[in-house]
Simulated scan of single mutants.
Amino acid sequence: MASKTPFLCVSAVTALLLVGCGDDKQTASTPAAPEQKAAQPAPEPEAAKPMVEQVKEEVTNAVDAAADTAEQMTDKAEQMAEEIKEQAADTMEKAEQKATDMVASVSEQVTPTAASGESTYKSLCFSCHDTGLAGAPKLGDKAAWEPRLANGIEAIYNTAINGRGAMPAKGGNPGLSDADVKATVDYMISTVN
Protein backbone atom coordinates (compact mmCIF):
# COMPACT_ATOMS: atom_id res chain seq x y z
CA MET A 1 0.00 0.00 0.00
CA ALA A 2 2.86 2.21 0.55
CA SER A 3 3.09 2.78 -3.12
CA LYS A 4 -0.44 4.08 -3.41
CA THR A 5 -0.25 6.63 -0.59
CA PRO A 6 2.17 9.05 -2.21
CA PHE A 7 0.11 9.02 -5.30
CA LEU A 8 -3.00 9.91 -3.34
CA CYS A 9 -1.15 12.63 -1.54
CA VAL A 10 0.11 14.08 -4.73
CA SER A 11 -3.29 13.74 -6.23
CA ALA A 12 -4.96 15.38 -3.29
CA VAL A 13 -2.51 18.25 -3.29
CA THR A 14 -2.93 18.66 -7.00
CA ALA A 15 -6.68 18.65 -6.63
CA LEU A 16 -6.52 21.25 -3.90
CA LEU A 17 -4.28 23.37 -5.95
CA LEU A 18 -6.52 23.02 -8.93
CA VAL A 19 -9.58 23.80 -6.87
CA GLY A 20 -7.83 26.71 -5.27
CA CYS A 21 -6.60 27.94 -8.63
CA GLY A 22 -10.00 27.42 -10.04
CA ASP A 23 -11.48 29.60 -7.34
CA ASP A 24 -8.85 32.19 -8.07
CA LYS A 25 -9.50 31.95 -11.80
CA GLN A 26 -13.24 32.14 -11.27
CA THR A 27 -12.85 35.12 -9.03
CA ALA A 28 -10.41 36.75 -11.38
CA SER A 29 -12.49 36.08 -14.50
CA THR A 30 -15.78 37.21 -12.98
CA PRO A 31 -16.27 40.78 -14.02
CA ALA A 32 -16.41 43.22 -11.24
CA ALA A 33 -19.65 45.05 -10.70
CA PRO A 34 -19.62 48.31 -12.62
CA GLU A 35 -18.81 51.26 -10.55
CA GLN A 36 -21.86 53.38 -10.01
CA LYS A 37 -21.51 56.96 -11.09
CA ALA A 38 -22.12 59.33 -8.38
CA ALA A 39 -25.46 61.11 -8.91
CA GLN A 40 -25.23 64.84 -9.42
CA PRO A 41 -26.70 66.45 -6.43
CA ALA A 42 -29.71 68.63 -7.25
CA PRO A 43 -28.81 72.27 -7.22
CA GLU A 44 -29.69 74.01 -4.08
CA PRO A 45 -32.82 76.21 -4.59
CA GLU A 46 -30.82 79.30 -3.70
CA ALA A 47 -28.13 78.37 -6.23
CA ALA A 48 -30.74 77.94 -9.04
CA LYS A 49 -32.30 81.40 -8.51
CA PRO A 50 -29.78 83.31 -10.67
CA MET A 51 -30.27 80.81 -13.50
CA VAL A 52 -34.07 81.08 -13.27
CA GLU A 53 -33.85 84.88 -13.19
CA GLN A 54 -31.63 84.87 -16.29
CA VAL A 55 -34.09 82.65 -18.19
CA LYS A 56 -37.01 84.87 -17.12
CA GLU A 57 -35.13 87.95 -18.31
CA GLU A 58 -34.33 86.36 -21.67
CA VAL A 59 -37.97 85.31 -22.16
CA THR A 60 -39.17 88.81 -21.19
CA ASN A 61 -36.70 90.37 -23.65
CA ALA A 62 -37.85 88.03 -26.43
CA VAL A 63 -41.53 88.83 -25.76
CA ASP A 64 -40.77 92.58 -25.72
CA ALA A 65 -38.82 92.32 -28.99
CA ALA A 66 -41.69 90.39 -30.60
CA ALA A 67 -44.20 93.01 -29.38
CA ASP A 68 -42.02 95.82 -30.80
CA THR A 69 -41.74 94.04 -34.13
CA ALA A 70 -45.49 93.45 -34.25
CA GLU A 71 -46.13 97.13 -33.46
CA GLN A 72 -43.71 98.23 -36.19
CA MET A 73 -45.36 95.87 -38.69
CA THR A 74 -48.81 97.17 -37.73
CA ASP A 75 -47.66 100.77 -38.19
CA LYS A 76 -46.11 99.92 -41.57
CA ALA A 77 -49.29 98.09 -42.67
CA GLU A 78 -51.44 101.07 -41.65
CA GLN A 79 -49.12 103.44 -43.51
CA MET A 80 -49.25 101.26 -46.64
CA ALA A 81 -53.04 101.01 -46.41
CA GLU A 82 -53.29 104.82 -46.21
CA GLU A 83 -51.01 105.20 -49.24
CA ILE A 84 -53.10 102.69 -51.18
CA LYS A 85 -56.29 104.55 -50.24
CA GLU A 86 -54.78 107.83 -51.45
CA GLN A 87 -53.63 106.26 -54.70
CA ALA A 88 -57.02 104.63 -55.23
CA ALA A 89 -58.80 107.95 -54.59
CA ASP A 90 -56.47 109.70 -57.03
CA THR A 91 -57.01 106.99 -59.63
CA MET A 92 -60.79 107.16 -59.15
CA GLU A 93 -60.73 110.94 -59.51
CA LYS A 94 -58.72 110.66 -62.74
CA ALA A 95 -61.03 107.92 -64.04
CA GLU A 96 -64.11 110.00 -63.23
CA GLN A 97 -62.61 113.02 -65.01
CA LYS A 98 -61.72 110.90 -68.02
CA ALA A 99 -65.23 109.42 -68.09
CA THR A 100 -66.72 112.92 -67.85
CA ASP A 101 -64.48 114.09 -70.68
CA MET A 102 -65.45 111.09 -72.80
CA VAL A 103 -69.16 111.66 -72.18
CA ALA A 104 -68.75 115.32 -73.10
CA SER A 105 -66.87 114.34 -76.25
CA VAL A 106 -69.51 111.81 -77.26
CA SER A 107 -72.27 114.27 -76.41
CA GLU A 108 -70.68 116.87 -78.64
CA GLN A 109 -70.57 114.34 -81.46
CA VAL A 110 -74.16 113.20 -80.93
CA THR A 111 -75.90 116.38 -79.79
CA PRO A 112 -76.91 118.48 -82.74
CA THR A 113 -75.38 121.90 -82.80
CA ALA A 114 -75.67 124.78 -85.20
CA ALA A 115 -72.17 124.01 -86.42
CA SER A 116 -73.02 120.39 -87.28
CA GLY A 117 -76.29 121.56 -88.90
CA GLU A 118 -74.36 124.08 -90.94
CA SER A 119 -71.85 121.48 -92.14
CA THR A 120 -74.65 119.11 -93.17
CA TYR A 121 -76.39 121.97 -94.98
CA LYS A 122 -73.20 122.96 -96.82
CA SER A 123 -72.43 119.38 -97.84
CA LEU A 124 -75.94 118.27 -98.90
CA CYS A 125 -78.89 120.65 -98.59
CA PHE A 126 -77.40 123.71 -100.26
CA SER A 127 -78.02 122.28 -103.75
CA CYS A 128 -81.79 122.80 -103.41
CA HIS A 129 -82.11 125.42 -100.66
CA ASP A 130 -79.55 127.89 -102.06
CA THR A 131 -81.38 128.07 -105.40
CA GLY A 132 -84.97 127.29 -104.36
CA LEU A 133 -85.04 124.22 -106.66
CA ALA A 134 -88.44 122.48 -106.85
CA GLY A 135 -89.99 125.01 -104.46
CA ALA A 136 -87.49 124.48 -101.64
CA PRO A 137 -87.45 127.46 -99.28
CA LYS A 138 -84.20 129.37 -99.77
CA LEU A 139 -81.76 129.81 -96.95
CA GLY A 140 -82.49 133.11 -95.15
CA ASP A 141 -85.74 133.79 -97.15
CA LYS A 142 -88.15 134.85 -94.39
CA ALA A 143 -91.20 134.95 -96.69
CA ALA A 144 -90.58 131.36 -97.88
CA TRP A 145 -90.17 130.02 -94.34
CA GLU A 146 -93.07 131.85 -92.57
CA PRO A 147 -95.87 129.50 -93.78
CA ARG A 148 -93.81 126.46 -92.79
CA LEU A 149 -92.98 127.93 -89.37
CA ALA A 150 -96.69 128.58 -88.80
CA ASN A 151 -97.22 124.78 -88.71
CA GLY A 152 -94.60 124.47 -85.94
CA ILE A 153 -91.05 123.21 -85.76
CA GLU A 154 -92.13 119.56 -85.32
CA ALA A 155 -93.89 119.64 -88.70
CA ILE A 156 -90.72 120.96 -90.38
CA TYR A 157 -88.64 118.26 -88.63
CA ASN A 158 -91.11 115.59 -89.78
CA THR A 159 -90.95 116.78 -93.43
CA ALA A 160 -87.14 116.91 -93.38
CA ILE A 161 -86.82 113.44 -91.78
CA ASN A 162 -89.52 111.59 -93.76
CA GLY A 163 -89.60 113.66 -96.96
CA ARG A 164 -92.57 115.34 -98.75
CA GLY A 165 -93.18 116.08 -102.37
CA ALA A 166 -89.86 116.79 -104.07
CA MET A 167 -88.11 116.83 -100.68
CA PRO A 168 -86.45 113.39 -100.21
CA ALA A 169 -86.26 111.86 -96.71
CA LYS A 170 -83.20 113.18 -94.87
CA GLY A 171 -82.24 115.26 -97.88
CA GLY A 172 -81.52 112.07 -99.82
CA ASN A 173 -78.94 110.77 -97.31
CA PRO A 174 -80.45 107.91 -95.25
CA GLY A 175 -77.19 107.70 -93.25
CA LEU A 176 -78.06 110.92 -91.41
CA SER A 177 -79.52 110.51 -87.96
CA ASP A 178 -82.76 112.25 -87.03
CA ALA A 179 -80.69 114.48 -84.74
CA ASP A 180 -78.45 115.50 -87.65
CA VAL A 181 -81.50 116.40 -89.76
CA LYS A 182 -83.05 118.40 -86.90
CA ALA A 183 -79.74 120.27 -86.40
CA THR A 184 -79.72 121.15 -90.09
CA VAL A 185 -83.30 122.44 -89.91
CA ASP A 186 -82.37 124.48 -86.82
CA TYR A 187 -79.44 126.00 -88.71
CA MET A 188 -81.62 126.91 -91.72
CA ILE A 189 -84.26 128.52 -89.49
CA SER A 190 -81.60 130.46 -87.58
CA THR A 191 -80.73 132.28 -90.82
CA VAL A 192 -84.32 133.53 -91.20
CA ASN A 193 -84.36 135.62 -88.03
Rank of each mutant, 00 (worst) to 15 (best):
V13P: 02
V52C: 13
A62L: 10
A65T: 15
E71T: 15
N61Y: 03
D64A: 10
G20D: 03
G22M: 11
A33H: 00
E53A: 10
V13F: 15
A28P: 02
N61P: 00
K37T: 15
E57V: 04
E53M: 05
T60A: 12
K37M: 15
D23L: 09
V10A: 09
E53Y: 02
A33N: 11
E46C: 00
V59G: 13
A42Y: 01
A67N: 09
Q36E: 15
A12Q: 11
V10F: 10
V63Y: 10
A38Q: 08
P34N: 06
Q26D: 01
A62C: 08
V19S: 05
V55I: 15
L8N: 12
P41T: 08
D23T: 02
L18S: 11
D68M: 06
G20P: 06
P43A: 03
A39P: 04
K25A: 10
C21W: 13
C21R: 06
M51Q: 01
T30G: 00
S11P: 02
E35Q: 11
V59M: 14
K25W: 15
A66E: 15
G22Q: 07
E53G: 07
Q36G: 06
E35R: 11
L8Q: 07
A38K: 04
A33Y: 02
T14N: 04
P6G: 07
A38N: 07
E57I: 03
Q26I: 10
L8F: 14
A33P: 02
P31G: 04
A66N: 14
L17D: 04
F7N: 02
E58Q: 06
K49N: 09
Q54H: 03
A47E: 00
A15T: 05
E71V: 14
A39D: 07
Q40Y: 10
L18W: 13
A65N: 15
T14M: 11
P43L: 05
L16A: 10
P41C: 08
C9A: 10
V19Q: 12
T27E: 01
A12T: 12
D64E: 15
Q26M: 02
V19H: 07
P41Y: 03
T30W: 00
P45W: 06
A66W: 12
D64F: 08
K56L: 05
A62K: 08
A42D: 05
P50R: 04
E35Y: 02
E71Q: 13
G20T: 01
G20H: 00
Q36K: 02
E57H: 02
Q54D: 13
T27A: 05
K25S: 11
E71M: 14
N61C: 12
G20V: 06
M51I: 04
T27C: 04
A65V: 13
A70C: 05
N61D: 12
V59N: 13
V10H: 04
L18V: 08
Q54I: 03
D68A: 09
A12P: 00
T60S: 02
E58H: 01
K37Y: 15
C21V: 05
K37I: 15
D64V: 14
